[in-house]
Design a protein around this nucleic acid. Structure first.
Length: 654
RNA sequence: GCCAGCGUAGCUCAGUUGGUAGAGCAGCUGAUUCGUAAUCAGCAGGCCAGGAGUUCGAGUCUCCUCGCUGGCUCCA
């Protein structure tokens, strides 16, 4: 039999182990870091082979899997999980293992043990793992009948593995052995434990068995592993850097917002600079909604409880709502803005000619989120949605959804965000006819296709009243946060008896689309801060420029220059303190101010300023007019960049 | 809500085996008038998250509550 490893051709005997085949292939020196191999060209695009398994006779070509490829990293990390389980079983007799997959940037394994693991345990486990690695135990694969597998796991007391097999179904299972540890596993793995070169355990956490909060809480141990030490160190360094971009840290440093135990958890308070960012963003949004044919409306923060009963929110989300009572009347503090919008719709009879009606509200809502989920600005209890409800005819649904997706596309492009789209379909608990669901899901999917954006399908993850599209952004640590969402709703128009008069003179039921673009302003600003590491684009910066004097002799001119720029609408401060220039520069730099304008005797004489950017670049002496032109150009730059569907003309001036 | 960890001055942190609270930065006062990331000196600043307990004595040990952090679950 002949095996080809990329350019290298190796002759191996039939039935030789894959590890041996790879070793021979590698002697061609083409794939120094290959850790596994794959059979290519066998019809279904190739299968991963375990290195310890014999090469099947059908094999023609072997493709190397490089250690630093996504596939290779998965193999390394999943093998690391097995090695961790091996170590844990040695250290903690009586522990039961459950599942241990590779995940983004690492791996974990869930254990059932009599007590939680401590950070000290983590160190011991890591140490024991190093021993397992140094023992260089080969991973070997066997395919056995279910009866045989059950017998073996029963003997080891591994009841979870049996439950997994029952859930998976099937008659035969592959099991992997290294040393005395046997695990139910699909594979593949490294050839042996000694091939794991760089790993680190990071933290322990509780996790429910099968992700079900009613079931056993297990101990999850997280770790990370890479092809080599250099890559591992680089990853840990990245995490350190990411921590510096944490919006909670920057929020304090830049004096944007705060939380108070006295005010209540999840209730942000906006300081002047943070509120200025919000104001600019909100102004921008109002303009963008108006130009897209939305109407701006506003409803009250509290509405009578009966209304929430009618909408179904009282039944479904009572636990997460705040209530109050006034004059013996029960009120609910709104967790959503749609009810007011529907009441506005109902104030008159609407014709088919009036639709679609798009109502936009920067609506402050309150949701009593579970205490454990709160996270800085990214998950709060009091927040403002850039919410809109589109009430339209069924035949308009598709175009309306497409319009919203394009809107989202524009905004995300403006900020240079990468985002993920998910289409969520009908959940088990839901209301509405099959026909409605199909039509709406199809409208959402068609729109996604029309716009040509890639998306994932999240089966059964829709809201109970309709399917939806979610747009997710990443924070500094690459955790995903839902921002924009587009949801179809057949229920509320029904419950509130919304109708329009059609061409035929009859009453018809409209469809309602709930949608947010930024999502919650709070969350969006949190993600923005992390995205830009606090250095916001000039149009959004609370302070666009600061004028620094070298000595007090220039204070008069500096104040004039400040007033000149302010009169043009820019947000400018003057630092007239009796401090050294270097000190003032440092402060401005730490505050991430884009334009640092230095004024000394030379500049006063020339009637200009010396421009230093936050990048450290020095643009030299510039006139005040030239300075104003530069600030403006900087404001408009993101709007002019490619990829935008509309040309904005917005400098963020307040 | 669940599991674990943490909570000392506005911020970042130190605080020996339990013996009565400390630094840097920020703030205030004064001096200094200075050219692109920290001028010097002085002053002030704390119910050690809150409560209960153990102890002659608790920032240090135990329990409860609150809050924060990392996960899990949830997210209309």
């Amino acid at each position: 039999m002949q095996l080809r490893v990329q350019e290298a051709t190796v002759d191996v005997a039939p039935g030789v182990s894959c590890a041996e085949a790879l070793k021979q292939g590698l002697s061609g020196k083409k794939f120094k870091s290959a850790i596994a191999c794959r059979v290519a060209g066998n019809g279904d695009g190739g299968v991963m082979l375990d290195l310890s398994a014999p090469v099947p006779d059908t094999a023609e070509e072997l493709e190397p899997v490089m250690a630093d490829s996504p596939e290779g990293l998965n193999i390394i990390r999943h093998s690391a999980a097995h090695i961790m389980a091996t170590a844990v079983r040695r250290l903690f007799p009586g522990v039961k293992v459950t599942i241990g997959p590779a995940i983004e940037n690492g791996f974990y394994y869930d254990f059932d043990y009599e007590r939680p693991f401590t950070p000290e345990d983590l160190e011991r486990i890591e140490e024991e793992m190093r021993k397992v690695v140094s023992e260089n135990q080969p991973f070997s694969r066997e395919v056995v009948s279910k009866d045989e597998a059950v017998k073996r796991f029963q003997a080891m007391g591994e009841s979870y593995k049996i439950e997994i097999m029952d859930d998976l179904g099937g008659d035969v299972f592959s099991i992997y052995t290294n040393g005395d540890f046997v695990d139910l596993c699909r594979g593949p793995h490294l050839p042996s434990t000694g091939a794991l070169h760089a790993f680190k355990l990071t933290h322990v956490a509780g996790a429910y068995w099968r992700g079900d909060e009613k079931r056993q809480m297990l101990q999850r141990v997280y770790g990370t592993a890479f092809a080599d030490d250099k890559a591992l160190k680089a990853h840990l360094k990245r995490l350190e850097e990411a921590a510096k971009r944490d919006h909670r840290k920057l929020g304090v440093q830049l004096d944007l917002f705060s939380f108070h135990e006295e005010a209540g958890p999840g209730m942000p308070l906006w300081h002047p600079k943070g509120m200025l960012i919000r104001t600019i963003l909100e102004d921008f949004e109002r303009k963008e909604h108006l130009r897209r044919g939305y109407n701006i409306v506003q409803g009250p923060i509290i509405l009578r409880r009966e209304l929430w009963e009618r909408s179904g929110h009282y039944d479904n989300y009572r636990e997460n709502m705040y209530f109050t009572e006034i004059d013996e009347q029960a009120y609910g503090i709104k967790p959503m803005n749609c009810l007011s919008h529907m009441l506005i719709y109902k104030t008159r009879v609407r014709s088919y000619r009036d639709l679609p009606i798009r109502m936009f509200e920067l609506g402050m809502v309150h949701r009593h989120e579970k205490s454990g989920v709160l996270h800085g600005l990214l998950r709060v209890r009091s927040f403002t949605q850039d919410d809109a409800h589109i009430i339209c005819r069924p035949d308009q649904l598709q175009d309306e959804i497409t319009g919203v997706i394009r809107f989202v596309q524009d905004i995300m492009g403006l900020f240079g965000f990468e985002y993920e789209l998910e289409l969520s379909t009908r959940p088990e608990k839901s209301i509405g006819s099959d026909e409605d669901w199909e039509r709406a899901t199809e409208a959402l999917e068609n729109s996604l296709r029309n716009v040509g954006l890639p998306y994932d399908i999240n089966e059964g993850d829709g809201a109970f009243y309709g399917p939806k599209i979610d747009i997710k952004l990443k924070d500094a640590l690459e955790r995903r946060w839902q921002c924009a969402t587009i949801q179809c709703d057949f229920t509320l128009p029904e419950r509130f008896d919304l109708y329009y008069v059609g061409e035929d003179g009859e009453r018809h039921r409209p469809v309602m689309v709930h949608r947010v673009v930024l999502g919650a302003i709070e969350r969006f600003i949190g993600v923005l801060i992390e995205h830009y590491a606090g250095a916001l684009p000039t149009w959004l910066s609370p302070v666009q420029a600061r004028i620094l004097t070298v000595t007090e002799a220039q204070n008069e001119f500096a104040a004039k220059a400040r007033d000149f720029l302010r009169a043009k609408g820019f947000r400018v401060e003057a630092d007239l303190r009796n401090e050294k220039l270097g000190y003032k520069v440092r402060e401005a730099q730490l505050e991430k101010i884009q334009f640092i304008l230095v004024v000394g005797d030379k500049e006063v004489e020339a009637g200009g300023v010396n421009i230093r950017l936050r990048t450290g670049d020095n643009l030299g002496l510039q006139s005040l007019d030239e300075t104003a032109a530069r600030i403006l150009a900087d404001c408009e730059e993101p709007f002019k960049r490619g990829g935008m569907r509309y040309s904005f003309n917005y400098s963020g001036q307040v």
